[in-house]
Amino acid sequence: MATGGRRGAAAAPLLVAVAALLLGAAGHLYPGEVCPGMDIRNNLTRLHELENCSVIEGHLQILLMFKTRPEDFRDLSFPKLIMITDYLLLFRVYGLESLKDLFPNLTVIRGSRLFFNYALVIFEMVHLKELGLYNLMNITRGSVRIEKNNELCYLATIDWSRILDSVEDNYIVLNKDDNEECGDICPGTAKGKTNCPATVINGQFVERCWTHSHCQKVCPTICKSHGCTAEGLCCHSECLGNCSQPDDPTKCVACRNFYLDGRCVETCPPPYYHFQDWRCVNFSFCQDLHHKCKNSRRQGCHQYVIHNNKCIPECPSGYTMNSSNLLCTPCLGPCPKVCHLLEGEKTIDSVTSAQELRGCTVINGSLIINIRGGNNLAAELEANLGLIEEISGYLKIRRSYALVSLSFFRKLRLIRGETLEIGNYSFYALDNQNLRQLWDWSKHNLTITQGKLFFHYNPKLCLSEIHKMEEVSGTKGRQERNDIALKTNGDQASCENELLKFSYIRTSFDKI
């Protein structure tokens, strides 16, 4: 039985969820670079991206490699990797027998973001014989899940209580170790020597080791999670996991709180800001991140802002960003909400898709409305799209047979046209069989910064309504002859009103 693990408890099935942008060198404390989270699957090609990484700022997932063999891993080693800020997950990587050479110096898994409450997941690794993470000293947050690894031993010899604050939620089941077939031998045991430290858990006094050649490092209890030197002297209180010299914040392997210019500090002093819960960055760093993602459509890219001495992905609820200094300031009234469309555009074809934009005031991208039916549609669209004030790209209304009016965009005031449909149009209306009105132009103002209007096959939309939009939106004169079809717009509506004058002759039985 794995020490510190839980057996036999019912657990939810383990679901495996399925960018080499360097964020800056980590400095003297770390020998390499800070790398983003990685999802490495199918083959070993991307694994080489770990070569210079000291910190993975995010998670590391290595999974679904069915053609790899043990010899493929023999020359692979990433000794610079010290810390993973989120979680480490391995799933069905064939041929991998140990992690001792792959990650010989991995010391800390912070667990800032977890995989279903777990910071370390080893699942269905069919050839893994031992973990071998002999320098792993601290899992700051989260638990361990090690399950269905039929060859995995050296679990009962690990004292997880020396690595985690609590072992109650560890789930370590259905491994070879369960069948008591392992016969784990710690260093020196074969020669009758006791080389590794022994600890007591559940009444068992057991030597602690990761492999037959690597003991588990056990520091004096007084050192807590700070770690200790090879001689057993406690590291500085700002260290986490390990250090090369005692009581020196510049000799830590990793930091308990924050890293700044080669030393570990309790908090980031001005003019620095907390970033990702582990390091200090200056304003320029946060500003660069903001600008890199301002026009990016890459998933996970955030326009970072500053709030409460932190550089964070977005302002919290009730705050909006001051564009001059990136500071989050309290909103006066309802907060603006910028919604970034991942692929640059979004099609609204149902109430469900409209709900995804609920509360958005600025759309960074283009909207395509293609709704053919739905219950209580006008009210639903207004509830979900009615706060949109600005669209950076274009607005396209296409084959939306259920629409009679666009009044559900009740606050839309600006279409920038930074991206144009077919390279020309910022407003595009095609084949809307029941569209009769755009907006009530006596109450609604709309500016279209650039781009043209396109109207074709809107049989109940009168040309007068379209011409009014040209005047109000500032697009009059931009359109070419064929942009607004004269014969297919309003051709099934009563669009022309003329005053009919009647004269009559009164007659009676005795007068003409």
Rank of each mutant, 00 (worst) to 15 (best):
Q245T: 08
G183Q: 07
M65T: 07
I139M: 05
L60Y: 00
K224Q: 09
G203A: 11
K217Q: 09
N150C: 03
Q245E: 13
D247A: 11
Y319P: 00
F91G: 00
E151R: 12
E130C: 05
Q299V: 13
I139E: 00
G188R: 07
F116G: 00
F91N: 00
G95S: 07
W210G: 03
F258Y: 15
S98N: 07
G300S: 08
D288W: 06
T229E: 06
D75N: 14
M65Q: 06
T320G: 09
G95W: 06
T189Q: 12
I82T: 07
P79T: 07
Q299R: 15
Y304L: 09
R69M: 04
Y171V: 14
N170C: 11
V108G: 01
C328E: 03
F115M: 01
L60I: 05
N42M: 00
K100N: 14
N43D: 06
C252I: 01
E33A: 12
L102F: 12
Q204H: 11
R298N: 07
P334T: 08
F275H: 06
Q299Y: 06
F275D: 01
C53T: 00
V200I: 11
F73R: 01
V200S: 15
C196K: 06
M65S: 09
D86L: 01
I222M: 11
Q276Y: 09
G132H: 00
C215F: 05
F78I: 15
R279K: 05
P31M: 15
H59V: 05
E231T: 10
H302D: 08
G318H: 05
I139L: 07
Y304N: 06
E124C: 00
N179F: 06
A156H: 14
F283N: 14
N309Q: 09
S143G: 11
G132S: 10
V121I: 06
L152V: 01
R46A: 06
F91R: 04
G192Q: 12
I56F: 00
I185S: 05
L63E: 01
L29V: 10
V167C: 12
G232I: 06
I82H: 10
E151S: 07
K67C: 02
Q216P: 01
S161Y: 12
C182W: 05
L63N: 02
E314C: 06
D39K: 10
P70V: 11
P104R: 02
C243P: 00
I139Y: 02
I62H: 03
T85S: 10
H307A: 03
C215E: 09
L90F: 05
P336N: 13
K191E: 03
E180R: 15
N195E: 15
D248F: 01
N105I: 01
S296D: 12
W160A: 01
F78L: 07
D101E: 11
M65I: 07
V108R: 04
S324T: 09
L133I: 08
D247T: 06
L60F: 00
S213T: 06
V173C: 14
T329H: 04
M83R: 01
I62A: 01
G192P: 06
M137V: 08
C286M: 15
F78W: 03
V126G: 00
P249S: 09
E238F: 07
W210N: 05
Q276V: 10
L327G: 04
G333Q: 15
Y154K: 05
H302V: 11
C234W: 00
C228F: 02
K191C: 08
V55P: 02
G241D: 01
F258C: 05
T189P: 06
D261E: 01
C264R: 01
K100M: 09
P220R: 12
V265A: 08
N105S: 11
C35W: 02
C235V: 00
D101T: 13
D288M: 11
K67I: 02
L155H: 07
V108D: 15
C228M: 01
L50D: 00
V305W: 04
S161L: 09
I82V: 07
P220N: 09
D165Y: 09
V34F: 08
G188C: 04
N322Y: 04
L131P: 00
C182A: 04
I109A: 00
V253G: 11
P246G: 12
H236T: 02
I201P: 10
F78C: 03
H127Y: 12
L106A: 00
E238M: 10
L164T: 13
Q287E: 13
A198C: 11
P246Q: 01
K129W: 02
D178M: 12
T199C: 12
D39T: 02
Y118P: 02
P36R: 15
L88Q: 01
R297D: 09
G32D: 10
K294N: 08
P70Y: 05
D248K: 04
G192F: 09
P70M: 12
I172H: 03
M125V: 00
D72E: 15
L44G: 07
H307S: 10
D75P: 07
I306D: 11
N43L: 05
I163F: 03
T329M: 10
D178G: 10
P104L: 01
Y319L: 08
D72W: 03
R162W: 12
K80Q: 09
N179L: 05
S237T: 08
R110H: 06
F116N: 00
Y134P: 06
C219N: 00
T250A: 11
M65E: 05
P187F: 10
I163A: 00
C328N: 02
H59P: 04
I139T: 02
G241P: 00
I146C: 03
H127S: 14
P246F: 11
C268I: 01
R263Q: 07
P269Y: 05
G188W: 11
G32S: 06
M321W: 11
D178F: 06
L128N: 01
K217F: 07
Q216F: 05
T68L: 04
F123P: 04
H302M: 15
C223S: 00
T140V: 08
P336M: 09
L131Q: 00
I109T: 01
W278K: 00
D178V: 09
L128R: 03
Y304A: 04
H48S: 12
I122G: 01
C182P: 04
G183Y: 15
T45S: 11
D178K: 10
I139P: 01
C268T: 02
A119V: 02
L76M: 10
C268G: 00
C239P: 00
L155G: 05
F115G: 00
D86V: 00
G37P: 03
E266W: 08
L29S: 08
I139V: 08
F258D: 01
Q299L: 13
P336I: 10
N308R: 13
I40V: 14
L99G: 01
S77H: 01
S143N: 10
K129S: 06
D177I: 06
V55N: 08
C215Q: 03
I62G: 01
E33W: 13
V265S: 09
S284A: 12
D184G: 15
Y171H: 07
V253H: 09
V265W: 11
L81K: 00
L120V: 08
N43A: 06
E49R: 05
L327V: 04
T140Q: 07
C186Q: 01
K224R: 05
G37K: 12
G58M: 00
R298V: 06
V218S: 10
R298E: 03
E314V: 05
L99D: 00
G132D: 06
S284M: 10
S324Q: 04
N105R: 07
R113A: 03
V218F: 12
P36N: 15
R69S: 06
H290A: 04
P104N: 01
C35S: 00
G188E: 09
L332M: 12
V206K: 08
C209S: 02
I201L: 10
Y171F: 05
D184C: 11
V305A: 10
N42L: 00
P336E: 07
R113T: 03
D75F: 12
Q299G: 04
R110L: 13
D178Q: 12
I201M: 14
K148I: 01
I146R: 02
Q276W: 07
E57A: 09
G95I: 05
A156L: 05
V253L: 11
N308M: 08
Y304M: 07
F103D: 00
H214Q: 08
K129C: 08
L96C: 08
T320V: 10
G142K: 00
S237P: 11
C255S: 00
R256K: 09
C235L: 01
T320R: 11
C264F: 00
N257K: 04
N202F: 07
I109Y: 00
D159G: 06
S143H: 13
F258S: 10
P70A: 08
C228W: 01
F116I: 00
A156W: 07
D72C: 14
L240F: 06
K176W: 08
G142L: 04
V93S: 00
D247K: 07
H28G: 00
N309V: 06
R145H: 04
K224H: 07
R113I: 09
H307M: 15
I56H: 04
F66A: 00
E49Q: 08
C243Q: 00
